[in-house]
Amino acid sequence: MAYHLRCRSAPAVHEFAQAVRRALPVRDADEPRPNGTELVTEKPLERAAPNRIRQLRWSLGGGYVLVLVLLLVTDAGVVPGVLWAVAPGPIAAGGLGVYGGWQLFREAWVLRTRGITVEGRLQRSHFYNGVEQYTYAYVDSHGVRRERTGSDGGAERVEITYDPADPETTKVGRRTAGQLVFGAVLILLAGAVLVAGVAFVVMGMAALVI
């Protein structure tokens, strides 16, 4: 049976280990069992690396609140304070929209330029969050059997286009023009929202400087 004890004080750990060693019997060299004192070991604990992402969040949050307070208590005006207060909303929404639009556009572009289309056969279907999901099995160009699950499909046999460099990137059917257009439009619209949020930040900072 082994026991692991932890303590932040290195001197206390050393004194405790010494006391345990003195209390354990010392065995002869001829005995098959190991000496009890040799089983007591001391090991320094590794310090956990600081969570830099959390520190960055706290720093940004503190800076945001500080600027907001300065805008409210100084003669900067109500409008810059309101714009600064609402700026995180459009920045977050715009950033997520741009990222989502880029993912859609990139996936469609990859499938359009280097995608391979094969036949997929329906394996099973189930409901997830009220939406029916279809799982199709297909064999890629290397003879590997793969599966694709999504809300597209429904027929027993469909065409599945996949990226040979990343087989997880798939879609039902060959057409990608609609996804390309939708991704581009989403990038433009979300980009406008993101720019507006950044403009709110600039206007708030400018009100403090000027």
Rank of each mutant, 00 (worst) to 15 (best):
Q55L: 10
R124C: 07
F105R: 00
R47Y: 15
G62L: 14
A10R: 12
A108T: 02
E31N: 09
G120E: 02
V73S: 08
P44I: 07
D140S: 10
G94V: 03
T37K: 09
D28I: 08
S125D: 12
A108D: 02
Y3D: 11
S141T: 07
A87S: 14
G89W: 12
E119Q: 06
L68A: 07
A23T: 11
T135L: 02
T37I: 12
G62F: 13
Y64K: 12
V86F: 08
R121M: 09
V65T: 11
G62W: 10
Y99E: 13
R106V: 09
L24Q: 04
Y128F: 06
E132T: 15
A29S: 13
A19P: 00
L72G: 08
I91R: 03
T41Y: 06
V40P: 01
Y138E: 04
I53K: 12
T74N: 08
I91T: 07
G36N: 13
D28M: 10
P90C: 11
E38T: 15
H142W: 00
P34R: 15
L71Y: 05
L96D: 07
K43S: 15
R124K: 10
A93P: 04
G89Q: 08
V73M: 05
G81V: 07
R27C: 05
E46I: 14
S59Y: 13
R106I: 04
L56H: 04
R8M: 10
T41S: 11
E132A: 12
L83K: 01
L45C: 15
H126A: 12
P88M: 13
I91C: 05
V65K: 07
T74H: 06
L71N: 00
G97F: 14
R57T: 10
D28T: 12
L5Y: 11
D30S: 09
A17I: 10
V110F: 00
P50T: 10
F105L: 00
V118D: 02
F105E: 01
W58A: 07
L83A: 04
P11E: 09
R47W: 15
G95K: 04
R21K: 11
L66D: 03
G100R: 04
V86I: 15
R112Q: 11
V131N: 13
A2G: 01
H4Q: 12
G130R: 08
G61W: 12
V13D: 04
V67R: 03
A108I: 00
Y128N: 13
A85W: 06
L56V: 07
Y134A: 05
E15S: 03
V26M: 05
R33Y: 09
L60V: 11
V86R: 02
G143E: 01
H142N: 13
S141A: 07
D28G: 14
L60F: 08
V78Y: 08
L122M: 03
R57Q: 11
S9F: 06
E38K: 15
R27V: 09
W58F: 06
Y99W: 14
V79W: 03
E38I: 14
H14D: 15
